[in-house]
Design a protein around this nucleic acid. Structure first.
Length: 234
DNA sequence: TAAATTTGACCATT
DNA sequence: AATGGTCAAATTTA
């Protein structure tokens, strides 16, 4: 089971990060579907961590209609300052995981217009889009000693052991060097799965080497989990 | 049994 | 026609 999940993780990364041939993508897609079914059978036995991990905040911006929009990539999509009520779920083309739609629990009785979309990107990372601000009263906030986790996260397929919230790809070769179990990569060789990399200062502590030959095609890339600083533009 | 979630239908936009 | 956002009845959960 662990092995299956591991493979799924690698395959998902390959699909998301692209830049391989259509034939390989198709093969990966088929394998991914099979594996996700197996992995999905043990869903709902893991809760999101309460502790806040670092997250990638995209600067707040106001869209064309002057509506507050904020996006972030995080391993903990459900903040505990507000309560959310799920009102929809969709399969989005090109996405492996479903997208879930939430509105503030107090949208009806208090007219709070805050909404949230949660798009799972990898087994442990979520792209969260907030629109609108909470206008609901403080009655929705929680006490400090309340350690229960918001149950509205139950749709999440799986949250793997905590990793820093970014997943990167770089071409293997001489663009990086190894020093005492850490890899250093030139930032202009890095691609992210979420957007254009603006700047980076980081090291890697886990590498998923995917430089194998599948279907006669060499796949020369690695997917890494790292720590450090990243700036990403969407 | 009230509240939250699931899920296919419905609708707007492109 | 395809896609993504929302509705709401059915179902599940606490």
């Amino acid at each position: 089971m662990e092995h299956a999940f591991d493979l799924t993780k690698k395959l998902q990364s390959l699909i998301e990060l692209g830049s391989c041939s259509d034939r390989l993508k198709e093969l990966v897609r088929v394998l991914k579907d099979d594996l996700l079914q197996i992995v999905g059978s043990r869903k709902n036995d893991v809760k999101p961590q309460k502790k806040c991990m670092a997250s990638l905040d995209v600067p707040i911006r106001i869209d064309r209609r002057r509506i507050y929009v904020r996006r972030e990539i995080t391993a903990t999509p459900f903040d505990h300052d507000h309560q959310w009520r799920k009102y929809g779920e969709k399969n989005i083309t090109g996405c492996i995981f479903t997208r879930s739609y939430y509105r503030c629990t107090y949208s009806e009785d208090q007219g709070c217009t805050a909404k949230m979309q949660v798009q799972q990107q990898t087994p442990s990372l979520f792209l969260v889009t907030h629109t609108g601000r909470h206008t609901c009263k403080a009655s929705s906030s929680r006490t400090d000693d309340d350690d229960t986790v918001n149950s509205s996260a139950s749709h999440i397929t799986e949250i793997t052991p905590p990793v820093e919230p970014f997943l990167l790809r770089f071409d293997s070769g001489d663009q990086y060097k190894m020093e005492e179990n850490k890899s250093y990569v030139r930032k202009d060789m890095i691609q992210t799965s979420f957007g254009k990399l603006e700047s980076a200062d980081l090291t890697f502590h886990e590498s998923i080497d995917s430089s194998s030959t599948i279907g006669g095609i060499d796949s020369l890339s690695s997917v890494c989990v790292g720590h450090g600083f990243l700036s990403i533009r969407f």
